[in-house]
């Protein structure tokens, strides 16, 4: 089994109020390391055996069509063994 990871992030120019809220909560807990925080989504897609080129292309298509909204988000597809 392998896991195909799709990570989705808001484009840098899109305001991320959730990330901003996290960034402002950190110092209240004494964590002062963050200059800024942006929050995204991670999908873990489990497949049987090694992912094939076809499967990866399909995941790529699904990431474009459903998992992300290309108007506001970008995505990265990776394989984890």
């Amino acid at each position: 089994m392998a896991t195909i990871i799709v990570e989705v992030m808001l484009k840098p120019e899109i305001l991320d109020p959730q990330g901003q809220a996290v960034a402002s909560a950190l110092p209240r807990l004494g964590f002062n390391f963050a200059k800024s925080v942006r929050q995204g989504k991670r999908f873990e897609i489990v497949v049987d055996g090694e992912p094939t080129h076809t499967q990866l292309a399909e995941v790529e298509a699904a990431a474009e069509k459903l998992l992300s909204n290309p108007v506001i988000e970008t995505y990265v597809v990776k394989v984890e063994k």
Binding site: L10, L15, P17, Q18, A21
Partner: peptide, 11 residues
């Protein structure tokens, strides 16, 4: 329609 609707600025 173009564009997108995201989380309100003040959450």
């Amino acid at each position: 329609l173009p564009g997108a609707l995201i989380r309100n600025q003040d959450l």
